[in-house]
């Protein structure tokens, strides 16, 4: 793919992924008790842990979303998002296999009516985007290329040229 086109695509994907996680985090920060119930519905963790995670995870999502959006602690943000999405996909599949009627809770009340198939599709698309960003950044961070925030700034420069 043409380098400039790839940079623009890279920038757009970073904006979308960062934006989605900030949105998802903010929605859950506003209703931590509802999110605690959603985690508890998976029947994988005791309530004492579910409720504490419900307070912590949304902020982690927001910080990682900001990291991806701004380019500061970029790879660390991608690493955590990768882990979060993977854990969530596994938890969803296990819960479904156990016959639990779960609500993913990914976007608070807004996701209550999403079917399991849609949850999973959305998660796999997000996972693919995060992996794409990780690999693109890795390629660009090799000797002679920019990385993280620099890569984003670089792509911004390309935008101007375009």
């Amino acid at each position: 793919m043409d380098f400039s086109l790839r940079s623009v695509l890279y920038r757009i994907v970073a904006l979308i992924v960062g934006g989605i996680f900030i949105y998802a985090g903010v929605i859950k920060v506003m209703d931590p008790i509802g999110f605690a119930r959603d985690i508890d519905n998976y029947h994988m963790l005791p309530w004492v842990i579910s409720v504490r995670l419900a307070f912590y995870l949304p902020w982690l999502e927001i910080f990682c979303g900001l990291a991806v959006l701004c380019g500061l602690f970029y790879r660390g943000g991608l690493l955590i998002l990768n882990a979060l999405i993977s854990i969530f996909i596994i938890a969803s599949i296990v819960a479904k296999a156990r016959g639990l009627d779960i609500t993913c809770g990914c976007f608070g009340q807004a996701s209550k009516n999403l079917s399991f198939a849609w949850h999973l599709t959305l998660d796999f698309v997000l996972l693919a985007c995060v992996i794409f960003l990780w690999l693109s950044d890795r390629r660009q961070s090799q000797p002679g290329a920019a990385s993280g925030a620099l890569a984003l700034q670089g792509s911004h420069g390309v935008n101007k040229k375009l």
């Binding site: 982690l60 910080f63 990682c64 990291a67 380019g71 500061l72 602690f73 970029y74 790879r75 660390g76 943000g77 991608l78 690493l79 955590i80 961070s141 920019a146 990385s147 993280g148 925030a149 620099l150």
Partner: peptide, 13 residues
């Protein structure tokens, strides 16, 4: 930022 390892960044976040 580039020089900081991903794991270290993750721990900071």
């Amino acid at each position: 930022t580039v020089r900081t390892s991903a794991i270290r960044q993750a721990l900071i976040l």
